[in-house]
Design a binder for these strands. Sequence first.
DNA 1: ATTGTCTTACTGGTCCGACCACCTGATGAC
DNA 2: GTCATCAGGTGGTCGGACCAGTAAGACAAT
Lengths: 237, 237
Amino acid sequence: MFQRIKTKRVYELVVEQIQEHLRKGDLRPGDKLMSERELADMLGVSRSAVREALSALDFLGVLESRQGEGTFIADVSSQLLLEHLAVFVTIDREANLELLELRKILEVAAAEMAAARAGALDHEKMAEALRLMEQDVHSGILGESNDALFHRCIVESTQNKMLTKSMVLLSDLVVQNMRVSRQFLFQRPGNRERLYNQHRQVFLAIKEGNSEKAGRAMVDHLEFVERELICYGSRPE
Amino acid sequence: MFQRIKTKRVYELVVEQIQEHLRKGDLRPGDKLMSERELADMLGVSRSAVREALSALDFLGVLESRQGEGTFIADVSSQLLLEHLAVFVTIDREANLELLELRKILEVAAAEMAAARAGALDHEKMAEALRLMEQDVHSGILGESNDALFHRCIVESTQNKMLTKSMVLLSDLVVQNMRVSRQFLFQRPGNRERLYNQHRQVFLAIKEGNSEKAGRAMVDHLEFVERELICYGSRPE
DNA sequence: ATTGTCTTACTGGTCCGACCACCTGATGAC
DNA sequence: GTCATCAGGTGGTCGGACCAGTAAGACAAT
């Protein structure tokens, strides 16, 4: 019925004003913000409050403070922001299957798009990631990071920056998802090779420029993983 | 060749230590952090530095500071974090078409899933959003916020939290995209009604439980928008 | 015994001033 | 013209003072 009343901290009010100027385009990447002392005077608050606000935005990667020079608007498309977000989001134990479902939506489309759009350099990157994955099979390690690298190469070759950014957000979760999946899969003999071959089928279809085949190969791959997860109840602990 | 050397700020080091405890599970949502003064003593830094770190994490929604009580670990699955991220990401002028492509991937899948999974309450919410959209048509306003509401109702009815969260991240961009699209579309007579009807077709298919039809209706809708944007060169300014 | 009031100790919140480290531009010496 | 030095400005850190809020305990009134 009644809720805790949360008054705004001074630093939040400072952040909001900076946000507003960014939103309106008054401040752009590369621009220098006014000095801390000026800002404190102008806003009628202490320099400490301004510093708290600037630290919050510095941490988010929105601003960059350079000692002796000033504080600058960073390039907001920076990956840092997304990476900071990912660090604090851990996968819900129940959410592995939901993430797989989302991956099916995004990565099947990405495979199809990659088949249509990937160039020679993209193919080379995928092939390299695939070689690393093959090494992982032979060395017997879990190998989720090269698995993730392969998938990232595919997404990057779609040449859709919005899609690539969305996958960056999810990347930490995806790596966790792969780690969990692989722990299960590798309990069954032959699954390492099977998994590697599924990735290889995806790659061959992309290289061949066959969108339909690439999409189907990715569906096969992700549904195989999904079935294994369902089979094991998706509870590694 | 050589790059600027960026030394770590004290507040960042404080954040990292807190991060580490969160990552290891020593600190969980609801736990109370040690007091600022204790933390400053223990870490051998000033209380100001601790405050800067706590402000950054408070802003991210990771912590919650309560005056007189202490600082607590927040529930990290909070939407606040995603919303803060979205506020700082503005759409690239060239990116409208890319976003539409991403929306096609996500929202066509969402429409199909919604047809399969939506319950009576979901239908009611969509119908209400549709009524609001109809009002917007009659009153002649741009109407992007109710458009966005309708789309959000669909995504929520998929019952996939990962997908819903991803759309939350994109929601500010999507609203911007709708605003731009509608400015173009409404220059051509009849497009208001056509747009409304497309949404209605999506809703009817979902209500009917027909995934294929829902997906197709959503494709039709988004491709219609896409064609108009391409036609106008996607440059409103 | 229960409830209300007051006090104390602790918490975060804000401000201020001092000082340090770094950067940039201007000036003077060679 | 080049280089070194200085001044003035920037952010970075620290510590102290004081305020506002919270919780717990002690004591008085019912």
